[in-house]
Write a protein that binds this DNA or RNA. Structure first.
Lengths: 211, 211
DNA sequence: CCCTAAGAGTACCGTACGGTACGGTTCGGC
DNA sequence: GCCGAACCGTACCGTACGGTACTCTTAGGG
């Protein structure tokens, strides 16, 4: 796990603090420009002084929010036993569908937006944290599956990282950037499943051992 | 009020206005938080009053800047004559390399960041404009090539849009989101060329007619 | 029943920035 | 050489927001 801060997440977040962070997420989803400390305090029914006491400053609050959300999104496991072609496809599809669901959620879009805006202005933990918990976390979770599949003779590749990046591209395509830029793209559950199947089929056509 | 003129006159940008917009791009690249009207005026050696006269307000200035940059990035043509397998691969690689070069440029990253931040806060032309001049513009330019290649019997697909999106994913992969989030990813000219070749090879493996 | 601590609510301060006003300067037209 | 337009530089205004201080309420502990 190269990104050390991927899991430095929900340490010592009291339930009440969780409520506050949920309020931040709400406001974030409603529109980034409404995210003022006063608005957070009002929404969470707490005082600004408490916000500053708990989170230090505005950046600290945002950082805690990003970590808080990351700690809530954990998914995509696979069965290490009996890995045959069907099980592989199924696991990959589960990863793909989960990933598409996450990146198309309003929360993820809003959080990525604020992290990207933050990354533009010098001092930026947010971008790094989002990357560590998003793109890199899923990479580290998926690579073992890819390598197990390779050892089982189901797929072939030299570089697991490169293979994952191809998978990533086939799954995500233009979805994330379109959502971030405000395109009115909506992914239904059915479309996500179909997209996941298509992406996995394409991936296996590129990397699968001909049988 | 000359405001209407200034907004509508995104095609008729005087040289002096171009200088101002270039100054905006400079500041944008240097760090988004430094982009204040005062800073623009200082950098461009013009008065704030002139900025407001020409561009209406801050959003107008940003919009003009996005359009200005878009008007500077036009590339990726292909030879309609003699379209054989080699020519197709070459054209696709040119598209891919050009696209990678654009999205990994500091200017593009900075502009996408501000557009994304803008898209978060309700009323947002910026996101739409960036999308129209980026993702969708290249799609519209590439699809004719794909369709010509299909008619030439080089590739096979039902939906040109879907084929393009796959191409888009294979080329871009995780590059754009990583750059937007501030990952220290640098693409050398050689890597871009290699990536373009890989993406095209993969695309042709998925869509190419077996020969 | 008091004492203390946590925290809600609110008033307040400083500053940064969007937007405006105005005096001074340059320059093309007559 | 004069006039007006364009425009630079800058001082100025209003406001929004980050951050702080202060009061008031509530809850536990003795």
């Amino acid at each position: 796990m190269p990104q050390a801060d991927a899991i430095a997440a929900d340490d010592a977040v009291t339930p009440r603090q969780g409520e506050v962070l949920d309020a931040v997420l709400e406001l974030l989803v409603e529109g980034r420009d409404t995210l003022t400390m006063t608005a957070v305090a009002r929404r969470a029914s707490c005082s600004k002084e408490t916000l500053y006491k708990w989170f230090g400053d505005r950046d600290g609050l945002l950082t805690a929010t990003v970590r808080w959300q990351a700690s809530k999104v954990r998914a995509g496991n696979w069965d290490r036993q009996h890995l045959d072609a069907d099980a592989l496809a199924e696991s990959l599809e589960a990863f793909a569908a989960n990933w598409l669901t996450v990146i198309s959620s309003k929360t993820s879009v809003a959080l990525n937006r604020v992290a990207i805006a933050h990354a533009g202005s010098g001092r930026s933990d947010l971008g790094r944290i989002v990357l560590a918990n998003g793109r890199f976390a899923i990479g580290e979770r998926l690579k073992p599956l890819l390598e197990a599949a390779r050892e089982a003779g189901l797929i072939a590749f030299n570089d697991a990282e490169a293979a994952f990046r191809t998978f990533f591209g086939l799954v995500g395509r233009d979805v994330q950037v379109r959502l971030l830029l405000g395109d009115g793209l909506v992914l239904s559950k059915a479309e996500i499943v179909a997209d996941a199947e298509r992406a996995v089929a394409q991936f296996l056509m590129l990397y699968g051992r001909r049988n």
